[in-house]
Design a protein around this nucleic acid. Structure first.
Lengths: 213, 213
DNA sequence: TAGATTGTTAATCGATTAACAATC
DNA sequence: TAGATTGTTAATCGATTAACAATC
């Protein structure tokens, strides 16, 4: 059963859930019906205690002395993550990264449906990427409303990111996934997740420098 | 001066340094010579105490009663992050994402030099992307050695990622930046940073579900 | 039943925040 | 000098790890 007292879940836990989900899918595809926190932890690189603690925040999904039923746990985590339903997403800025995201097939298997693409470059408008036509940025507001787009993806240059976010919010998106390397501000009612590709590479460089000066 | 007792630095601190660096660059380009932890924190969305604590782990870069000299701090953080030198990177797997990374111009401004591209698809081999020719994956070992490539980027499908990583390590890379959604194992002497694009979108979905059931 | 493994409480560890003396 | 702001120490907060009773 699902624990109703949500909210006391740490950010770190939420970030691990997709890892659990992905690994459970793999385990299921291998034909296992049952998995222990020990085995799951070994494959992900997390302690069994951590997994049990994380899951216990949402409910009691396992059987003592047995383990977790793979298909059942997968289903429960899917519901928790909200990927048991369909989310319509729209990408603004069809540069290299936007184009790559528009073609990312893995998203579909988690309920994310590519509903619209936008770019300000007239040469791109009208082109079809992964079955979706690129529209002018001026069409953004009406399209977000018409196609019931809940999630906006920002892949425009940093200086334009805030204004795109503002327009997305005004048009009614509930969440923004930002790839522009700049801090964006949105109302508290809108969920914002920002990615920063340069952090990873720079972290690598930091550790390499320690090692080989 | 730089504090020699490195090593007690938290992961969270290292992850914030690139943000400091990026924002200081912006502040410098705006013409400011001096910045306080208060102002820097306001722009990044971090408390001033956090910034002072983070920086103090590496040395005393500020002037009491005054603040931080922007150019000087920028230079110091650059040295700490190891982006004051050149790192040669090679990308394996020129799909949508590999292609986007090969074209990412921001990397060059932080010392990352695109030195080689590899793909197993014969149709791609010989093509030139961002001035660099795509080579066959079979050429990987010799090219990594010849071109002194220190950082390998993995953008191949998950099932192939581990074997590509093994070959990179054998060929002598010191760090791996992995985008394949799978856990990769490397020797302790090799630095590994993994990105998982699906985590961000799934986190968004999790929070949206809380808000609009 | 005996062995295994969960869910949960307690102990530890680490990171953030608050406070303030040092000093420009 | 007075005001401002750093660097650092102490207090708080939160997350992870360890331990174990419950129970399949």
């Amino acid at each position: 059963m699902l624990n109703p007292k949500y909210g006391s879940i740490s950010r770190a836990t939420v970030d691990r859930l997709p890892l659990y989900f992905r690994t459970l899918r793999l385990i299921k595809s291998e034909g296992s019906d049952i998995v222990s926190s020990e085995e799951l932890g070994r494959r992900i690189g997390v302690t069994p205690e951590q997994i049990r603690k994380d899951l216990a925040g949402f409910g009691a999904f396992g059987k003592k002395g047995v383990g977790y039923h793979v298909a059942e746990l997968l289903n429960n985590i899917g519901v928790i993550l909200g990927i048991d339903r369909r989310w319509n997403i729209g990408i603004v800025g069809i540069g290299h990264l936007g184009w790559a995201l528009a073609n990312y097939r893995n998203f579909a298997s988690m309920g994310f449906h590519l509903s619209a693409l936008f770019d300000q470059n007239p040469a791109l408008v009208g082109q079809v990427i992964n079955g979706v036509e690129v529209l002018a940025v001026s069409d953004m507001e009406t399209t977000i409303a018409d196609r019931n787009i809940q999630i906006g993806v920002i892949t425009v240059p940093a200086p334009e990111a805030q204004s795109v976010a503002d327009r997305m919010v005004a048009a009614g998106v509930h969440g923004i996934w930002n790839f522009a390397p700049v801090r964006i501000r949105v109302p508290e009612t809108v969920q914002l997740v920002s990615e920063d590709l340069s952090v990873g590479l720079t972290t690598l460089s930091y550790h390499l420098r320690r090692q080989m000066p």
